[in-house]
Design a protein around this nucleic acid. Structure first.
Lengths: 158, 158
DNA sequence: GCTCAGAATGAAAGAATCTTCCGATCCCGA
DNA sequence: TCGGGATCGGAAGATTCTTTCATTCTGAGC
């Protein structure tokens, strides 16, 4: 397994990134021991990783089914026209929909692919009718209900 | 916007969950001020939220393009047979592939949908040939290269 | 309306951690 | 070998965490 060859990221930095990705709340002291540097150095490097944009933030991972968002749905979207204006309008509008976790412009049979979390199928059906098909330029959507989440949000391996 | 009606989650808990999802490293003292309770209470409630499974962990969010994983690909998979054994074999095998971030069993034209992160198209092509199509029971795959990540990994809204 | 038991709360203090300072070391090019 | 800049780790003050304990809140039962 080849590691990133970014010269700014040495072996210590990579270890720190992996550890922080696994446990974002690890104490600076523990992280220092784990990666084999002093607490002072560890603290400095961690700050640098954040400032340099390697770490874009720290988040608590909330269990979806515990907050009434246990139903996952994937939706393929086809737009009426393939113009930049059409894409921009769609993207702007979809960005405001809080239940859309992912939205990607793709090459293939669809224009966009959405990943959506809702309470249940009835909830999705309501949102689909009131929000999704009303998005600017939408010609058609194809819905894939998720029956089983085998892997969701796995950490990056680098 | 209706909030979760879980009796175990009161207004304070919800505020805490939202704050922790936004900033997993917020200090206990700051979080206490933000949600309007004492530091002691805040500390206790946070622990309870984790122990009760509302928070499944804390993570640093690593910028994919900074670690040579800037290319995102969605793949629809169709299996040979729709037997429980076939599904189980596929899921077990796909769970070992570290570059698969999401894997969901879906209803519709595909059996599974995968979300994959790789360095570039060449890297994907290599992995597709050596790993994906070799997964147990795979009849065909359809690849959707992501040309633009409009939204990726948005936080849950509850 | 009253009482009481259990749960939840906040102030406070000791323990642990963070964060900065500073002198020492390392690295590399001249 | 030398010099200069970058990096490092020890140490200590500042901050934060975490527990304790007395008080307050809540609601069931009478």
């Amino acid at each position: 397994m080849k590691e990133s060859s970014d010269p700014d990221l040495n072996r210590i930095d990579l270890k720190m990134l992996r550890a922080l990705q696994r446990d974002g709340r690890i104490s600076n002291a523990d992280l220092a021991v784990e990666v084999g540097v002093s607490a002072a150095t560890c603290h400095r490097r961690t700050q640098q990783l954040v400032e340099a944009g390697y770490v874009s933030g720290f988040r608590a991972v909330v269990a979806p089914h515990k907050v009434e968002l246990g139903t996952l749905v994937l939706v393929g979207v086809v737009l009426d026209r393939s113009t930049p204006e059409s894409f921009a309008a769609f993207e702007s509008a979809v960005g405001k929909l809080k239940f859309v976790l992912d939205c990607h412009l793709v090459a293939g049979d669809f224009d966009y692919f959405l990943k959506i979390r809702v309470r249940d199928m009835a909830d999705f059906n309501r949102l689909h009718g009131t929000q999704l098909i009303g998005l600017p330029g939408v010609r058609q959507t194809r819905t894939f209900f998720v029956m089983k989440e085998v892997v969701d949000g796995r950490a990056l391996e680098f």
